[in-house]
Write a protein that binds this DNA or RNA. Structure first.
Lengths: 280, 280
DNA sequence: GTTCCGCATGAATCGATAG
DNA sequence: ACTATCGATTCATGCGGAA
C-alpha cells in the first residue's frame, strides 16, 4: 500500500493554488467562509463583496481540477435585512460564465439544526452542496454510496406485477429474465440528491465545520483510492481527515493560524481501524 | 359561521387577475407549470423563455397581494444538456427587481421521488418553495404548524388524528380528548424550513399535483380563517380544496379546460369533518 | 374492524435512433 | 449538424382488495 499524502498549507488559497499544476485534483470540496459582517472570523467578507472575492479563487480551482474532476461547494446564503441575500445564486451565474458547468445541487438536510425562534422565519435546516464540473464527462462512482433499500421491498419483491413485466420488457421478454434476477438480488438502492446528516456539535474550536460524513460521502462518490482531494478553505481539516481515512491524497489550505494548527494536529491523529468499514 | 367562497376561473391568470383589486389576497401559493414540462397541456414554455413569461404574471400578483401577505412559489429547475438550468435563480433576481422581497427558501423533500438511474446524477428528491413578500411586516402564525418532537411522536399524532375524527362524529370520549391536547402541547416544537412530504401518486387526472399537505401547511402558516388565498395556476384545485377545508376563501385560475373542470368537480366534494383537526 | 399485501404511477434523465 | 422521438432505467407511496 502506497503512502497517503496529506498536506496542509498556511495561507490564502489564491496564492497557494498558484503553485500547483493544471489538472491535478480529482475533487475539490469545501465549505468556504460564509459572507459575514463580522470582521474577526475570516477577514469578514461582506455579502455584497462575496462574489468578487470568490471568483479569482475559483479561477485557480478551475485550473487545478482535472477535466474528469468535480467541485463541491457547500454554501448557504445569510439573511440580510430580513431577506435571503442573493450572493450565492449570483455566484452560480458567475461561475458558469467562468467556465464551470452547474451540474447539480445537492441538498444537505441538517437533522439537528441550530435552535432558535424568530417572529418571521423558522430555523434553517438545510444547506446547498453545489456541484460544478469542467466537462460533462466527469467520474462518478455511484456504487460506493448505495444505501439499504426500504422495507417496502420485502413485500414488493415477492411477486412481480404485470406492470413490472410490461414496463421492463417492451421487447417481449428477451431482457426480462435478467431484470428479474437483478431485482430479486437487490438489497441496496442508489441514494437521492438529498443528504440527511446531523451537524457535529462537539467541535467548538471551529465554528463552520461540516460533519465528517459530508466530505466522506462526496469523496467516495467522486474519487477512487489514491486520488487527490483539495479543500481550499479547510478550517479544522475535516476534509483532509476524511480523505486520509479513505486512502486519498489530500491538500488543505487555511489562512487562519489557529485553524491551520488545528488541522495539522487533527491529521497527526493515528488513522483508526474503521478504514475498512468506510471504504465498503 | 360565514360562508366560505371558492371561485375557480377559466383563463390566463395574466388577464383574470387584472379584474381583481389591489391588496386583496393574504396568500398566493402556486406551483406554476415548470419549463418544458406538460408541454402538451400548457404549450411548454422553453427554459430560456421562462423568466420573460413569468414576470408579467408576477407583476399582477404583486399588485393583488396585501402588504402583509405572502407569495409561495413552488418550482424546480430541470436538467438541460447535463446542467441544471438557471431560469429559477434568474427568476429570483428578476422578482427582486420587480419589487418582491426574497424572504426565505423552504425546502420540500420529496420522500418518494421519481425513480431512475443515470451515469452522472442521482434521483432528484427536492423542490424549492420560495417565499416572497411585499414588505418585511408580513403575517405569520407559527403556532398553527407546530410539529411533534421526534419521529415516535409523529406516529402517535397520526393515530390520535384518527381517534379524534371518530370522537367528533360519535360524541364520546371527551375526557380522553382533553388529555390528548395537554399531552400534545408539551410535545410540540416549531418546525424548520424543510418539509418532508410524499407526492401524491394516486391521482390519474392531473400529472403534477402537489400533496395537499403542502398548501395546507402554508395556508395555516400565513393566513387566518376567512382570509383570501390565490392559486393562479391551480391545476386540479388542490390549493383551493385545502383553503376550503381550512375555512379560507380562495380563488383558483386555470387555463386548461380539463383541469378547470376537474377543479370545479373537486371543490364540489362535501367538506369533511376533519376541519376541526386541521385548524388545530 | 384491523392488518396485510398487491399494484399502478409519478414536474425524470440519458443515450441511441430517426427525421 | 441539429432537433425530435423513444426505450431503458428505477424506488417509494397510497389505495383498494383480501385475509
Amino acid at each position: 500500500m502506497s503512502e497517503i499524502k496529506s498536506d496542509i498549507h498556511f495561507g490564502d488559497c489564491l496564492e497557494i493554488l498558484a503553485t500547483y499544476p493544471d489538472n491535478f485534483f480529482d475533487l475539490i470540496i469545501t465549505s468556504p467562509p460564509y459572507a459575514d459582517s463580522r470582521a474577526n472570523s475570516y477577514g469578514g467578507i461582506k455579502p455584497d463583496d462575496y462574489v468578487a472575492w470568490f471568483l479569482p479563487r475559483s479561477q485557480q480551482m478551475l485550473r487545478v481540477l482535472k477535466p474528469t474532476g468535480t467541485f463541491i461547494l457547500n454554501l448557504k446564503e445569510k439573511v440580510v435585512q430580513g431577506e435571503r441575500h442573493t450572493y450565492v445564486i449570483e455566484l452560480i451565474l458567475e461561475l458558469r460564465k467562468q467556465g464551470w458547468l452547474w451540474t447539480e445541487e445537492f441538498m444537505w438536510h441538517k437533522k439537528n439544526c441550530f435552535p432558535g425562534k424568530w417572529p418571521n422565519r423558522f430555523r434553517d435546516a438545510w444547506e446547498r452542496c453545489l456541484q460544478f464540473n469542467k466537462t460533462k464527462k466527469f467520474n462518478m462512482y455511484q456504487e460506493t454510496v448505495m444505501v439499504p433499500i426500504g422495507d417496502w421491498a420485502k413485500k414488493r419483491l415477492k411477486n412481480l406485477s404485470e406492470t413490472d413485466k410490461t414496463r421492463d420488457t417492451s421487447k417481449v421478454g428477451s431482457g426480462f429474465g435478467k431484470n428479474v434476477s437483478n431485482w430479486l438480488a437487490r438489497k441496496m438502492a442508489y441514494p437521492t440528491n438529498v443528504l440527511h446528516l446531523a451537524t457535529e456539535t462537539g467541535n467548538r474550536q471551529h465554528s463552520a465545520v461540516f460533519p465528517k460524513e459530508l466530505p466522506t460521502w462526496f469523496i467516495k462518490l467522486f474519487t477512487q483510492e489514491n486520488g487527490w482531494v483539495l479543500d481550499p478553505f479547510c478550517g479544522a481539516g475535516t476534509t483532509c481527515q476524511a480523505a486520509q481515512r479513505l486512502s486519498r491524497h489530500s491538500v488543505g489550505i487555511e489562512i487562519k493560524q489557529e485553524y491551520y494548527d488545528l488541522s495539522k494536529a487533527n491529521l497527526s491523529t493515528p488513522v483508526s481501524t474503521t478504514l475498512i468499514l468506510d471504504s465498503l
